[in-house]
Design a protein around this nucleic acid. Structure first.
Length: 287
DNA sequence: GCGCCTTTGAAGGGT
DNA sequence: ACCCTTCAAAGGCGC
């Protein structure tokens, strides 16, 4: 495969490095990496079939690039807190800037496909012996019950005015979270007040969104940041309540290999709200 | 030592 | 068609 013809040499190099590094060192952070280096007993098997990581998506690429900046600006070091900031900043990026990262991500995926033909993301599922069980991913299904329905399921598309604000924004469903908490017998704990509210920019963003937010904001703050991560209490509500920030282009994100809308083709019409549902999130469909 | 937290996006299985 | 789950990065924190 002549990847070097298609991809810049440096890009290729860093891409390959990422996967090879992860195999020998195991970044110590990514849980997916841990089994790779910790289970010495499985070394043989893993030598046969090394762990190939997923290509980074646009946001991951953005995070990688901007993390150092945010860490430098803030006194925060916790990745969860940093990521919340980055998530907000991501939403406040212009579409051109976002498009840049979508394009990079598309290249990463292409390169990944060329380097590892036949690789499937599913290959990484349950990598290592222990399968991860995430708290947030359990609960709801097990608890069951109508009260736990998310806004979309509860009210339907034609009653979007009944949806909670986060759902309208494709954020975590407040009603869903509350129902979960109620079902569990506990309400979400209030956020711990952050020691250092990062940059003024972020604080302003928070103030803006706070001032302009209505009903759903209070529960949202507590519900969407169960980790008690500081300074970020309002980060859950996207930076741009007043003028909606550029949303993730439907045309650029999912399956964009087949997507007719390449980055260069983006127009102001082609940036509807994200159309993909996420766990605990709802989709805003513009009809 | 290991999993969680937190973010968005991609992918694929399940309904 | 839509929903759900998992994993990519990162590093501190709790058990």
């Amino acid at each position: 495969m002549n990847c070097s013809k298609v991809f810049p040499r440096q890009f290729l190099k860093s891409f390959i490095n990422r996967n090879s590094r992860s195999q020998e060192k195991g970044s110590s952070s990514s849980s997916a990496d841990k089994p790779a280096d910790s289970s010495a007993s499985n070394n043989k098997e893993q030598n046969k079939k090394p762990h190939i990581k997923k290509p980074l998506n646009a946001f991951m690429l953005y995070m990688k690039e901007m993390r150092a900046k945010v860490v430098a600006e803030c006194t925060l070091k916790e990745s969860a807190a940093i990521n919340q900031i980055l998530g907000r900043r991501w939403h406040s990026l212009s579409r051109e800037e976002q498009a840049k990262y979508y394009e990079k991500a598309r290249q990463e995926r292409q390169l990944h496909m060329q380097l590892y033909p036949g690789w499937s993301a599913r290959d990484n599922y349950g990598y290592g012996s222990k399968k991860k069980k995430r708290k947030k991913d359990r609960g709801p299904a097990e608890l069951g019950g109508n009260n736990l329905k998310k806004c979309r399921a509860r009210y339907g598309l034609d009653q979007q005015n009944q949806w909670c604000k986060p759902c309208r924004r494709k954020k975590k469903c407040v009603r869903y979270m509350e129902a979960m908490a109620a079902a569990a017998g506990t309400m979400p704990l209030p956020m711990v007040i952050p020691k250092s509210p990062c940059s003024e920019e972020d604080v302003k963003l928070e103030e803006l969104s706070d001032a302009s937010s209505d009903e759903a904001d209070t529960p949202l703050n507590s519900a969407s940041s169960p980790g008690g991560l500081s300074a970020l209490s309002s980060l859950a509500s996207p930076a741009s309540d007043p003028p909606p920030p550029p949303r993730n282009p439907v045309g650029t994100n999912p399956r964009d290999a087949n997507n007719p809308l390449s980055v260069g083709q983006l127009t102001s019409q082609s940036w509807p709200r994200a159309a993909q549902a996420r766990p605990g999130h709802e989709v805003i469909s513009v009809s």
